[in-house]
Simulated scan of single mutants.
Amino acid sequence: MRLDEPWTLSPSVALRPEPFGALAYHFGNRKLVFLKTPALVEVVRGLASAGDVRTALVAAGVAEGSWPAYLAALDGLAASDMLLRREGEAAA
């Protein structure tokens, strides 16, 4: 996943808020994933309205030094089909 790509939460995924962050459940493939921080939940929710991943990270207040860890977490979510690349949108 690159910072300049547009992504969004899959419409098949529901997020359930939890004290540690959230549970993400994919109704299609039945995968359950733990989002371990509230900031990660905010990034994931913000992807739909952000032009790209970088914008979602900045909007969630994630320090730039933490971006590699967040990108790794987002890569894992994308590999589980929790996140979908928004097709037809040019990268910023």
Rank of each mutant, 00 (worst) to 15 (best):
A79I: 02
S10I: 00
D52L: 05
K36P: 09
S10W: 01
G76C: 04
A73G: 07
L9W: 08
L74I: 08
V43M: 05
E5A: 06
E89Y: 12
R86M: 13
E64P: 03
A39S: 13
F34T: 14
E42T: 15
A79N: 02
Y70G: 07
G51I: 01
A92C: 07
L3C: 06
F34I: 15
L23P: 01
R86W: 07
L83H: 07
E18N: 00
T8R: 13
V41D: 04
V41W: 01
M1N: 07
L83A: 05
V44A: 12
M1A: 05
V44W: 02
S80N: 15
S66K: 15
L9M: 09
R16W: 13
R54Y: 06
A63V: 04
S66T: 11
P68G: 11
V44H: 06
N29A: 14
W7T: 02
E42S: 15
E87I: 14
G88Q: 05
F34P: 03
V41N: 05
V43H: 05
F20S: 09
E18L: 09
A56D: 00
E5W: 04
A48F: 13
L3K: 03
A14R: 15
L32H: 09
A22S: 02
V53E: 03
P38L: 07
G28Y: 13
S12D: 13
A59E: 02
A60Y: 03
A39P: 05
E5V: 03
L35I: 03
R85I: 09
L57W: 00
W67H: 08
G21D: 10
V53I: 14
L3V: 00
P17Y: 07
T55F: 01
A72I: 13
A24I: 00
R54M: 03
R2E: 15
V53G: 02
A56Q: 00
E18W: 11
E42A: 14
E89V: 13
A73V: 04
A59G: 05
A63H: 02
E87Q: 15
A91I: 04
G65E: 06
R30F: 10
W67L: 02
A92V: 09
G61V: 08
L77W: 02
D4M: 10
W7S: 07
E89D: 15
V33E: 10
P38D: 08
A91N: 14
D4E: 15
G88V: 09
R16N: 14
N29L: 01
W67M: 02
E87V: 15
R30S: 12
D4H: 08
V44F: 06
D81P: 06
